[in-house]
């Protein structure tokens, strides 16, 4: 069946385009993601958030680490950086420090942000660096073959734990809150409306914001655990999720097949990195302090 022979029995205006397309590098499609992978769904939500927040897209930069999720930067029609494994946050920090008017979004996987990159995550949250961190949590190192990640729940079968994971997993939302994040939410790829609303909210909020998106990796996680395909996973998310805004994050652990607490857990105002810098320096130096002019003269 080709496009020419398809009959769509509704009237499609000639100028209709998929609203996601202007946000994608269409010359790089098709993308690499598997059938039923949730990463593309999160990209749709991010796109809608950009539209709804009326962001100036020339001033939005996206930074990814390495992994299936790490490929998002390469598909986004924004200033985009595909960095090294685990280091998206420090790269993004440099970008933000050099050019504070940029809206800097970090878009990466659970392994990238919380295993190899975990140290950078907690420190950026501690500093309340003005970054919007979106973590697609598929509970595994997907790109490299489905190894155990710090997020993989116990009892799960993975490439590196063929007899079941026995280490406790990180609770990412609790970690983010404890480290100092200004905003913490969790959704699944089933919750497209809520997710895009959360993304829109963080695009409008100052400080370190964190959104965890639980997402299927049918190829390497669900299949190995006999949990069906992407659609089965989406149905599980629908059935097992409980929206509990403001729930204590410590109660939001994930298990292999149990309840998934979703919602906005933290939304608070802490002084941002720049505010802390400027107030400390002004306190110490008084008039002698001028807010840093970080752009080089020739630039």
């Amino acid at each position: 069946m080709s496009e020419q022979t398809l009959e769509i029995p509704c009237n499609i205006p000639a100028d209709a385009v998929n609203p996601v397309e202007p946000f994608l590098r269409m010359d790089r499609m098709p993308h690499i993601w598997c059938p039923g992978c949730g990463i593309g769904t999160t990209v749709n939500c991010f796109t809608r958030a950009l539209i709804d927040s009326h962001a100036n897209l020339d001033k939005v930069a996206i930074v990814s680490g390495i992994g299936c999720t790490g490929r998002v930067a390469g598909y986004a029609n924004l200033d985009s950086f595909h960095t090294t494994h685990g280091r998206a946050i420090p790269f993004a920090t440099g970008l933000k420090l050099a050019n504070p008017e940029l809206q800097v979004v970090v878009y990466s996987g659970d392994g990238d942000l919380f295993a190899i990159g975990g140290n950078h995550f907690i420190h950026a949250a501690r500093r309340n660096m003005d970054l919007k961190v979106i973590c697609v949590n598929n509970l595994t190192y997907a790109m490299t073959g489905g190894q155990t990640a710090p997020t993989t729940p116990s009892k799960v079968i993975s490439a590196t734990n063929p007899y079941g994971v026995f280490e406790p997993a990180f609770n990412l939302v609790a970690l983010a809150e404890a480290a100092g994040a200004s905003y913490v939410a969790r959704w699944t790829t089933f919750h497209v409306k809520q997710l895009s609303r959360s993304m829109e909210e963080v695009l409008r909020k100052k400080g370190f914001c964190f959104i965890e998106v639980i997402s299927p990796c049918p190829t390497l996680y669900q299949r190995r655990n006999k949990m069906g395909d992407g659609l089965d996973t989406m149905k599980y998310y629908k059935q097992a999720s409980k929206i509990r805004h403001g729930a204590p994050t410590a109660e939001c652990d994930l298990t292999k097949s149990g309840e998934i607490v979703v919602g906005k857990f933290v939304d608070r105002d802490r002084p941002s990195y720049f505010e802390m810098l400027n107030s400390q320096m002004t306190e110490t130096l008084g008039d002698r302090y001028a807010e840093p002019e970080v752009m080089c003269e020739q630039c």
């Binding site: 209709a16 593309g40 769904t41």
Partner: peptide, 24 residues
């Protein structure tokens, strides 16, 4: 087709950017 509200939920879900809905 007559039941389509153009809500674009299909567009938000589609991981392959292959479908979208819109209101007339």
């Amino acid at each position: 087709a007559e039941k389509c509200s153009g809500c674009d939920l299909c567009g938000m879900y589609c991981p392959d950017f292959a479908i979208f809905g819109a209101r007339y």
